[in-house]
Nucleic acid binder design. Sequence first.
RNA 1: GGGCGGAUAGCUCAGCGGUAGAGCACCUGCCUUACAAGCAGGGGGUCACAGGUUCGAACCCUGUUUCGCCCA
Length: 880
Amino acid sequence: MTELSSRYDPHTVEHKWYQHWRQGRYFEPSQAPGKKSFTIVMPPPNVTGVLHVGHALNTTWQDILIRFHRMLGDNTLWLPGTDHAGIHTQMKVDEMLRSQGYDRREMGREQFVQQVWQWKEKYGGEILRQIERLGASVDWSRLRFTMDPGLSEAVTEVFVRLYEEGLLYRGYYITNWCVSCLTALSDIEVDHIDEPGTLTYIRYPLADGAGEITVATTRAETMLGDTAVAVHPDDERWKAYVGKMVRLPLVNRLIPVVADDYVDPQYGTGAVKVTPAHDPNDFAIGDRHHLERLKVIGEDGRMTEAAGAYQGLDRYQARKQVLEDLNALGLVVKVENITHSVGHCEKCGTAIEPLLSLQWFVRIAPLAEPAIEAVRSGAIEFVPPRFEKIYMNWMNNIRDWCVSRQIWWGHRIPAYYCDVCDNIVVSRVPPEHCPRCGGTMHQDDDVLDTWFSSALWPFSTLGWPRQTEDLATFYPTSVLSTAYDIIFFWVSRMIMQGIHFTGQVPFRTVLMHGLVRDEQGRKMSKSLGNGVDPMDVIDKYGADALRIALVLSSAPGNDQRYSAERVEAGSHFANKIYNATRFVLMNLSNRPMAAKDTPSNHLADRWIRYRLNMATRDITSYLENFEFGQAARVIYDFLWDDFCDWYIELAKVRLKSSSERERAIVLRTLVDVEQDALKLLHPFMPFVTEELWHALPHQGDSIMVTRWPREQFVDFNDDDQKQFQALQDLIRGIRNLRAELTLPPSKRADVTIWVDDQVRVDQLQTVQEEIRELGRLSHMTILSRTDDAISKPPHAISQVVSGATIYMPLEGLVDIDKENSRLSKLLETTRAELDRVRRQLADPNFCQRAPQAVVDKARMSEQDLEIRLARLQERLEDLA
RNA sequence: GGGCGGAUAGCUCAGCGGUAGAGCACCUGCCUUACAAGCAGGGGGUCACAGGUUCGAACCCUGUUUCGCCCA
């Protein structure tokens, strides 16, 4: 790559290295004996889906962890897979077939499911290819799908066991029914949206003609299914009515007035209509009072036969009609406009109809208890910890889980019903005959909620219910990384099922990332059309740029905005280190390099190794604590600021002029430091680091299986730090003066530097070439202030830094006014700073209570500021 | 109604007890043979507001305002 262009091109590089890694089988666990396992099972994306930026972030986070642990030497497994996404996929295929003129119902179940499989085979891999393009080091040999035979077996096993343990039951309940998807939904698949609506007050006359009761409703059409009116037992207003009968308008049915604690006497009229078949609360009241459950709205959202004259009307038409008819009878007291929360199907957006239907439910309380305990005890940890509260709050109020779905695509419920008697058999294998009466049996038509299989994902993917080697080695898994919006859907259910069926927690750490919003801070959504396609971004900037941009702006649990600017900055960074490597390689050609670990006494060499050490320490610790953004920032700053802007610039001096031995040592340092820095960067930007690592002298086949850098002993003490600081201060001071005079870099300048003590003079002599080069100087004189022979340069502008005054002599006259105001300004800020420090030190409380190191630092700072102040005053006097 | 999170430079965000940071934008000067996707220098912030704790608060506590999310 020595001869290559000055621009890094990610596209030629990324595909190549991904193939290289796969061929080397580096994604598979090392299975090295004695090494501890580190496992992540990837949250399975929908098999029909495409990657969005949220996936990209989550995938990058996981890849960072995985690559980090692999380099630490752990037996590392990242297991990929996809989810069959029942309702979503069925809708998608259904839509496609309809556009081709086919009807799912005419086609029949078997044919349709076959079509879905075909569709899945054809299009289902898209998202996996996208994960690949991100550079995800997942073990493709262990790829799983929720409807694989093994995973399906796990689903059946769990269903049967739960049934046998009495944790699964079938019953009539009010479920969230989507009249468009034609299936029941669990509570959390319903989105509640505030909508304007009307609250209609309706008079129900008493059957005996001795009065009436007014009730209020937002869904007037349900009154056709009322089977009671309820009031609070202590409500004096209605006490006399309890036990009487009311004549239900429009249908003329006689229904009782019942007393029930559920009714809030403060709300509305204190009397409520009771529709047990169409409202969960009414259902409960109906249960307590043994009321009839009259279903007036059907599965298709139209009124049933029980709705009498309204049969066949759509629910909204019926509402309108009922209101008109009631009005005509003068039974509407008033209509209030209100805002109320209406449930909508998460998948299709249709308003949910609470409907009485026969469904399978998981009895959740017994499963929840140990799952709560696992988090309480710390066996499972949330990062950041505040999500623990959200989890607990949900788990403590959890309700039974409706798991049956009236669709065809998914795991069919392994329950069989006798065609003759009412026997139900739940079984791993289909029974041939009813064990009770010998009659024929048929399987339940419904399939299970997709989350039912997802809940088993951490162990079903590893082979459960079989006791496989993988299960023994990699379970419990280490980290689950996911977005916080599926704590309820998925995380909690995995914890419950994991503990119940394996006796162990499914993972130790739950790592939460936030939502990636668009550049305006809005949620990305299909309807807004504001989604960013990660593939477009990769096409334009490369996967590394996208990864580092996402990671740099992420913090656990926090939402972030997608920023094209940041991605661009990321690509610039890749280009920067590419060019740094080009520089090293150009110098490396035909020149000897010292043997590895040849010690160097040079201040700059020791400094960069010291900085590398600090970076290594910080990055390692940040990664251990899931602070990916912080870790990325450290390596970014190290490479750009310390390595490129300072070390390489300093190294140039010795590469040009010194002895061969010195050059060899500089090259060695450049290569050693860059190699380690590339390793530290590798989890974040795997492609460019692999490319550059290969370009540099190296041993081995891939950076991804090298050992993670460790902190090493570096001889660099406090005084070394001060020396280097002095070097930087001087160079900056000189550059500052140059800028004052707007000197172009091509124009060399002269300076005289007065240093406050002799020791520092000697030290600076050793790096005077560096100062000269980085300050673009021709002549430089370093003098000790203690030297009697010195005299001030007559015409010069000057800069005061810690421990030194820099004079830049001018050929012409110094602009006294300009110089005066510049130095005065500096003097003022210096004085203000000094005042602050003095005030602090004058406070006995500070000196007594603050840590010694802080007090010492303040004292040093005071001394330094005092000297600088004096120097500045001196200069101003000279100018006067 | 309950809970959670955000409010820091013009914009987007880090920092979360010891003298305010980054990217982008802005101003000045540079094609200084690794990089103009760059280099050097510079301007810009009573860290939402009010109290409190502390020697010391952007950071901890309390309250207020405001934006957003989750749950009922």
